[in-house]
Design a protein around this nucleic acid. Structure first.
Lengths: 206, 206
DNA sequence: GACAATACCAAGCAAGCGCTTGGTTTGTAA
DNA sequence: TTACAAACCAAGCGCTTGCTTGGTATTGTC
């Protein structure tokens, strides 16, 4: 498979209309929404907050989205789509199972602590605010994403390099990596994203 | 130090008025509040929900607590107090650093997935709903709790048994263990709490 | 340049929210 | 029995919420 960079992946997803262009009105709203939802929580964020963040009246929001919850759902759906593609590319760029796992860890840390960090945090911590029917739809996408992890972890396990059950390791990693959003501040303190990735791999004895 | 069981610890904390008796009106409310806050989130839980859960009128709540937020804070404060005492006892019951760490992991898993699980989940996932001044107060208690973990992890590190930085390992464990609340269901599926603890230790290469 | 369709505004509605109020019941102790 | 505080109820106030409505700019298309 050819190597592609992150921007190419984003562009092709936009072309397929699977994620909104960050430059479009919809895209800008979703970005601001993700930030507000992470900072204040979905419930504490009002439609007036959302509208103000993109400079329109609160009522005008409902021209783009039918309900407030639809905004939350859109944030989650587009985030999973983008990150599934990014993770797939990261895994494909490596040969060895260990290399693939490291790429996945690094890629997820990047998603959580980088550009799409707000949206990733929303995905993890605002799950309960989604209606049940929306949860089902988002869960379907999430399973593709998780499948990526499991295939790599199972490969490692068959090689005897994993010290615990693949399913459990993935779940522990889900918690551990998403939790980094609450404490990891790359700017102050010397730990880089690669350094953090190394620590995670070391912790797993890899 | 003498071995004490969990109930003895709870009783002595009640006697010192550091946590509410679960049989008292206040104690029952806090228990119901923890459950509701975890299930629906703090913001989605109304004072009418809280009152109905203990069979009183919504206005009557404010005879016991000045504000709704005070209820959230009380849930968090009492939960930390209880669990700090439980963790201290668990660590003291073991000799070796590895044994102490295992006891801490098991104890935290028990807190998260057992009786006080609702409250522990609230502590982790409703942090943002606390006012800043309350956050400061709860954080002070939290630091005692974290100190317990760090002293054990540092001891292990000095013995060369830890594969990554103690601070980072603790943070990874915080995320990983608290996340178990979203997927670990001891009743269905064969994994016991001890089994899960073993998996965590294995993952750390211990 | 006509004409939709799209994007937005200004105003406000109905419902639900946290919390207050004034008054009644219940528990306790002399 | 009396006295008094703690616990509770019934009612509702003032405010904020998500969302609707009727209308006006703005944009793209032929």
């Amino acid at each position: 498979m050819a190597f592609v960079n992150q921007n190419q992946i984003l562009q092709s997803l936009i072309a397929e209309q699977l994620v909104s262009d960050p430059a479009s009105a919809r895209g800008r709203l979703l970005k601001e929404a993700a930030r507000l939802f992470r900072d204040k929580g979905y419930e504490r964020t009002t439609v007036r907050d959302l509208a103000a963040a993109v400079g329109i009246q609160s009522g005008s929001l409902f021209h783009h989205f039918r309900t407030k919850e639809e905004i939350l759902k859109a944030v989650m759906v587009e985030t999973i789509r983008l990150n599934t593609a990014l993770m797939q590319a990261a895994a494909d760029s490596e040969e060895s199972p260990r290399g693939k796992l490291r790429a996945l860890v690094r890629s997820e840390l990047e998603s959580i602590n980088g550009q799409t960090g707000e949206a990733m945090a929303v995905l993890v911590y605002e799950w309960r605010s989604l209606s049940e029917s929306s949860q089902v739809q988002v869960l379907e996408l999430r399973e593709i994403y998780e499948g990526l992890w499991l295939s790599v972890l199972e490969e490692l396990n068959e090689l005897g390099q994993l010290k615990a059950d693949p399913f459990i390791v993935r779940r522990m990693l889900t918690g551990a990596l998403s939790w980094t959003v609450t404490w990891y501040k790359p700017e102050r303190g010397g730990l880089t994203l690669d350094g953090l990735t190394d620590q995670v791999m070391a912790m797993l004895g890899l």
